[in-house]
């Protein structure tokens, strides 16, 4: 199963810690809102995405696959 990143936008508070961990996948837009750039990132980004989920202060990121 392919890697899939799901952010619970009801929980996300736009801290942007995930952006430090996986800038290829997450970004804050000009208004400071979180944007998921790639919802199904390549397997090579697994470690970075796992790290992003770990460092989310509100634990809004889950990883499937």
């Amino acid at each position: 199963m392919a890697l899939k990143v799901v952010v619970d936008m009801n929980v996300c508070q736009d801290h942007g810690q995930c952006v430090f961990a996986a800038p290829q996948v997450f970004q804050l837009d000009d208004d400071g809102r979180l944007v998921v750039l790639i919802e199904e990132p390549d397997e090579s980004l697994r470690a970075a995405v796992e790290d992003a989920a770990d460092v989310c202060p509100v634990q809004a990121i889950s990883i499937k696959g």
Binding site: D14, H15, G16, V19, F20, L28, D30, G32
Partner: peptide
Amino acid sequence: IGMVRLVN
């Protein structure tokens, strides 16, 4: 205080 993207 606020300005999350900038403080980051």
